[in-house]
């Protein structure tokens, strides 16, 4: 593509200090470092949707929180529209915040139960100081209509507890749209919702992206949902991106053993069950030390001596086919 990417994330890293249990403590050292996000890099084009999938605790939500400024990474760089965001230029950061909005996982937690929908939806505009009180109703109505809450004037003065989970998530989306962002981050927006309403939220997000020419980072644990929503898919495991590429390639020809297992479970669970020894080592592998080998090696069916590597244990991402990168010693 001729244009520079909308967003470039390079070598972003975040460690959390975790308090150790009494039995695990050494003298003077009550904490251990846990890599939440480890050396994550990717680029996002304008109008593109990138899916990030992975299990809980793999760092996908932390990545989202870093991108919206809720978590400060230890190192790395985030370049949005040509400007570095992690530098300390406050005006750049403020401008960035208006351009990037997030829809959180839990629609019950992330909307203030004491506020009317009208105020919730207009809050981004109030905070950023560009709305007159008398315009509120009109703007809120337009946004409510936009996210499919019809007729909007019936919803304006309601409170969130009068809404169903799906409706709340629509309100959250309306709020995220209020500032007309260029990048929308959706952090598992449907995982708390009932199966029958999920499709509605997914379709809404798809049409909004097209209509507003937004980019989206869609975070989920379900590879099928990612396939439905995204142009490209990144698979995260233990804080790292282990595979990233075009949707069809990742789904149809997954390269990393972990991705292969994910695809098989989703595509044909029966097949996975009957020959799971081809996909993942059985039993529970929990005792693994960090460093010294590929992060997936303890559960990996094709590990061997090559999986041991020198530094922190990260296999480098290798381009196996155009724009399809895999971090596995066996995939090149």
């Amino acid at each position: 593509m001729a244009d520079a990417p909308l967003l470039t994330v390079a070598k972003v890293r975040k460690t959390f200090r975790q308090k150790l249990r009494w039995s695990e403590r050494k003298l003077g050292d009550d904490y251990k470092n846990v890599f939440a996000v480890d050396d994550v890099s990717f680029a996002l084009e304008r109008g593109e949707t990138l899916g990030i999938i992975g299990e809980s605790g793999c760092g996908k939500s932390t990545t989202a929180r870093i991108l919206v400024g809720l978590v400060r990474p230890d190192s790395g760089s985030i370049i949005f529209q040509g400007k570095e965001i992690l530098g300390n230029r406050a005006s750049d950061v403020a401008a960035y915040r208006k351009e990037v909005q997030i829809v959180f996982q839990d629609p019950y937690e992330y909307l203030n139960p004491r506020m009317r929908l009208k105020d919730i939806i207009c809050e981004p505009l109030v905070i950023n100081g560009n709305i007159q009180d008398n315009r509120k109703t009109a703007i809120a109505e337009e946004l409510l209509d936009h996210v499919g809450l019809n007729p909007p004037n019936e919803y304006l003065n309601r409170f969130t507890h009068e809404l169903s989970g799906g409706q709340r998530q629509r309100v959250a989306i309306a709020r995220a749209l209020a500032l007309r962002p260029k990048l929308l981050i959706a952090d598992e927006p449907t995982s708390m919702l009932d199966v029958s309403v999920r499709a509605g939220i997914l379709n809404l997000l798809r049409s909004l992206i097209l209509e507003h020419r937004m980019s989206m980072i869609f975070i989920t644990h379900d590879i099928a949902t990612a396939g439905y929503m995204c142009d490209r898919i990144a698979v995260m495991y233990k804080g790292r991106i282990i595979e990233i590429g075009k949707r069809d390639e990742v789904i149809n020809t997954p390269q990393h053993p972990y991705t292969k297992a994910l695809v098989q479970v989703c595509d044909n669970l029966q097949g996975f069950i009957s020959e799971r020894e081809h996909y993942i080592l059985d039993g529970e592998v929990d005792s693994f030390e960090q460093g010294g080998h590929c992060c997936f090696a303890p559960g990996c069916v094709c590990r061997d001596g090559e999986c041991h590597c020198q530094d922190q244990g990260s296999q480098e991402l290798i381009e196996v086919s155009p724009e399809h990168f895999v971090a596995c010693a066996h995939c090149h």
């Binding site: 999920r198 499709a199 949707r247």
Partner: peptide
């Protein structure tokens, strides 16, 4: 339901 076979099919709530 979204399924891996039918990622191109539009799902309906």
């Amino acid at each position: 339901q979204v399924s891996l076979h039918g990622i191109h099919k539009i799902v309906k709530p």
